Simulated scan of single mutants.
Amino acid sequence: MNTNNTLSLAIMSGKGGVGKTNIVLNLGYALYQAHMKALLMDCDLGLANLDVLLGISPERTLHDLLQTGVDARDVIVPIENGFDMLPATSGVPELVEMDEDMQDILFKKLISLANTYDYLMLDLGAGISHTVLSFAALTQLRIVVVTPEPTSLTDSYAMIKVLVTQHQVKDFLVIVNQALSQSEAKTTFERLAAACKNFLNIDLRNLGFIHQDSVLVESVRHQTPLMKYSPEAKASKDIRALAKKIMHYREDNKQRIAERPILKDFPSL
């Protein structure tokens, strides 16, 4: 019987530049601060970013995991005690469109390791590449990051449409990032939710929003997670609230999580 306790999340966006990777890093840090164990996996496989935000140069990456016999534990980079990352690599185009055999190899090597964490967070590349969509369909939850820009909404709708029509995925949570106010965030979510309801017949769930905050820009320049750089910043408080909602979801759905593998089609051994 499967006794999985790990909640897997894919954090994704229709277009680049919406702050997705920063959200992944800081949500993970907020979970760590709440005494949760989190593993971040940089799935922007051709254009790695998580290591850049942390100012580190990993010795090994997911590319090594695929091409050599190294153990997944040897690829992990510790951020804090119980808060780790699996770095990707840059400038390797064959990883951008990963075929099913490569995906099998990757996740079979990772699945037993991921089972030791409370959360597995996949930081997906932007857009609708085959790899992004197939990774998104594997996880238990999908979080779509949007901004109030019309292009972000249009591209996010297109991404959701492909997942609904081609991968039969119908459950999505939404984070509105870089919002000037709660009202702007609410309007942004409602526009996307209305389009998805009218044309795809699905109901999006509003996870919350993050204020536009200049302190976040400072933290990026210092290559330090915002939650560590300025824990009382406006955006930090928003991210902490989002982390609490995710923790409540995991607590409320323990039985549902336990009854299925961390990643669909990749059961724990």
Results as ranks from 00 to 15, higher is better:
residue 170 K to M: 15
residue 119 Y to T: 00
residue 125 G to Q: 02
residue 152 S to Q: 04
residue 155 D to P: 06
residue 181 S to G: 05
residue 163 L to T: 00
residue 139 T to C: 11
residue 143 I to M: 06
residue 155 D to G: 05
residue 142 R to E: 12
residue 148 P to L: 00
residue 130 H to A: 13
residue 175 I to S: 02
residue 150 P to L: 11
residue 132 V to T: 07
residue 186 K to L: 15
residue 131 T to V: 06
residue 170 K to I: 14
residue 127 G to M: 09
residue 155 D to M: 09
residue 175 I to G: 01
residue 144 V to H: 04
residue 165 T to Y: 14
residue 174 V to L: 02
residue 123 D to E: 07
residue 156 S to E: 09
residue 167 H to L: 14
residue 180 L to F: 13
residue 135 F to S: 03
residue 156 S to T: 10
residue 161 K to A: 03
residue 140 Q to V: 11
residue 117 Y to P: 03
residue 182 Q to C: 15
residue 184 E to D: 13
residue 183 S to D: 15
residue 158 A to D: 04
residue 175 I to N: 00
residue 162 V to C: 08
residue 160 I to F: 01
residue 152 S to C: 06
residue 130 H to T: 15
residue 155 D to C: 09
residue 164 V to S: 04
residue 162 V to L: 11
residue 125 G to F: 02
residue 161 K to I: 04
residue 122 L to Y: 06
residue 149 E to A: 08
residue 184 E to L: 13
residue 164 V to Q: 03
residue 117 Y to V: 06
residue 132 V to E: 01
residue 123 D to A: 05
residue 123 D to Q: 05
residue 177 N to D: 08
residue 135 F to Y: 11
residue 158 A to P: 05
residue 177 N to C: 10
residue 128 I to S: 08
residue 159 M to S: 11
residue 121 M to G: 08
residue 117 Y to S: 03
residue 183 S to H: 15
residue 119 Y to E: 01
residue 152 S to K: 03
residue 131 T to M: 02
residue 166 Q to N: 11
residue 155 D to E: 10
residue 161 K to P: 03
residue 126 A to D: 05
residue 140 Q to Y: 12
residue 174 V to Q: 00
residue 168 Q to K: 13
residue 117 Y to D: 02
residue 181 S to V: 07
residue 123 D to L: 06
residue 139 T to F: 10
residue 141 L to I: 15
residue 168 Q to L: 15
residue 156 S to N: 10
residue 145 V to R: 04
residue 151 T to Y: 09
residue 155 D to R: 04
residue 165 T to M: 12
residue 141 L to C: 13
residue 155 D to I: 07
residue 172 F to Y: 08
residue 118 D to M: 09
residue 124 L to T: 05
residue 173 L to F: 13
residue 125 G to I: 04
residue 128 I to Y: 08
residue 166 Q to V: 10
residue 148 P to E: 00
residue 129 S to W: 06
residue 138 L to P: 00
residue 178 Q to C: 12
residue 163 L to A: 04
residue 180 L to S: 13
residue 135 F to I: 09
residue 134 S to E: 14
residue 126 A to G: 08
residue 126 A to Q: 03
residue 153 L to E: 01
residue 169 V to E: 11
residue 122 L to K: 03
residue 123 D to K: 02
residue 185 A to W: 02
residue 142 R to Y: 12
residue 186 K to A: 14
residue 148 P to W: 01
residue 124 L to N: 04
residue 129 S to R: 04
residue 173 L to H: 12
